[in-house]
Design a protein around this nucleic acid. Structure first.
Lengths: 115, 115
DNA sequence: GGCGCCTATCGTCGGTCTACGATGGCAATG
DNA sequence: CATTGCCATCGTAGACCGACGATAGGCGCC
């Protein structure tokens, strides 16, 4: 099992289209938007997010090469994005594949759009 | 002069509808989005922004009363929002009126929507 | 089994943020 | 002219963030 398969979608979510029912304003929404915005509040993380959105598939070990930062620093930025739920990381054999979490991205757009 | 006048628009921008021509992606856009997002990355600032958007007119001295923070702290949050251009503050006699900057808000929505 | 690659985590240092009280400036009021 | 109200700024203390090197762990390969 688990031969060298590393093509398109070993981890990307299956395009769920369920609408988000949480409110778009109020105290809880304020804190949620603030948390998401804080995660975006760094150029490197914006860049990482863009890379993941652009490829529209999971990216494994190539993210470090795209940024002028040390490997540990990139790992921490990935951790921040993962903690707010904007990205997902799954182990695919020897490497870890990161992909975007479309629901969280839609949620962010909804919260910002609701301003 | 200047009796209790504090109604609609002593400072609010005249609803300019000029489209923003700056690019929505690339290195400069990344830093711009990161700066805007960092300014939003605090619940108090999200709340302030919502207050200004809700009233859709300038708010003078009532912002401090809406938040559970000291006056100096609120002033600093206002300064952060002003430095990224999301809000505008103009002196109106004895008090200072804050209002939202629709262009910056539209720019933020465009940048987030462009993800 | 041992080696090498890739990633996460730890520890640390310097810088920034957040919160507050205290202080100072400015305009209107008395 | 003195006072009052409103806001900005300063100074400070504690918490957090961003960056890095060093270290540890998991997996494939020889």
């Amino acid at each position: 099992m688990a031969m060298g398969k590393r093509n398109a979608e070993p981890c990307c979510p299956p395009a769920d289209q369920a609408a988000d029912l949480r409110p778009i304003e109020g105290g809880a929404a304020d804190e949620e938007l603030a948390a998401l915005a804080k995660a975006l509040g760094h150029p490197a993380r914006v860049q990482i997010l863009r890379i993941l959105v652009r490829t529209s598939t999971c990216v494994c070990g190539d993210i470090v090469d795209e940024l002028p930062l040390a490997q540990s620093t990139v790992s921490q930025h990935l951790k921040v994005l993962k903690e707010v739920g904007l990205i997902r990381g799954e182990v695919d054999g020897p490497r870890v594949c990161y992909c975007i979490e479309p629901r969280a991205l839609r949620r962010l757009k909804a919260l910002v759009g609701g301003l």
